[in-house]
Amino acid sequence: MSRAAPNPEVLSRLYLEAVLPCLADLSAQDPIARAIMGETRGSIALRILGGPQAVVSFDRGRIACSAAGPRPSVTLLFYTRSHLNAFFAGAKWALPLPIWGGWQIGLLNRFAKLAARLEAVLNGHEEVLSTAEGRRLYARLSLIAAGLGLAPLAAGDAEAISTLRMLPPGLAAFRIEGEPNSTVWFDLGADRRTSGWSNPPRRPDVNIVFGSLSLAYGAMRDEVDTMAAIGAGEMTIDGLIPLADGLNVVMERLRVYLQPEEML
């Protein structure tokens, strides 16, 4: 149970490094998202003045998200981290300044609709969770966001840093059985706090595997007893158990940051 206040810097990094990258999986998994994109090509950079940025690239139905890239079609500037956080939280006053490509109304409109779709999935809107496919999307994207969110939390959230300090170094990989490309990982070392959504860079020191989509869905919604699930063999943790245990605590911090009303 954590009540320590969120750090705005961490929150902005979570939006850029954990939430926005979920658009890639959304585009790969969700026909609705693909329909929104159509044959769009182009890229949008979301940049904080003097700070980090994320570049979302569209290429005929596929989306990629990175921290850098060739000159984007559109650049949206946020004056501060709080400005970006307010925008993602839905504040009407917090529109970014389009410093390049503001005339690309079509691209911006599609991006806005995709963002709304991502919000609906990650926040578990009723119309999404009412179908099996929607619940599958929710479970996948929530796990990916949680895994990718570990690095920003490790970099700046005081509680997360304190927890991580007590953990053994190692690489933890999380995935859902039967769901291709659902693996997210976090590498903790003396000078490493890296997350990724891909094949892990080396053999994980601990694998956390949700044995079914329904279990992952319940776990992401905090609706299942994961300890009982492990005992029943529905979820497996092999290897460096203390690392998995501690990362679970760090992931709990995401709830403090990404409450539904603060999402996209």
Partner: peptide, 17 residues
């Protein structure tokens, strides 16, 4: 047990440990 007891078996005797 998992139906009626949190963790199924809790504490140090839990299968998790």
């Amino acid at each position: 047990a998992a139906q009626v007891i949190p963790w199924g078996i809790y504490g140090h005797a839990s299968p998790v440990a």
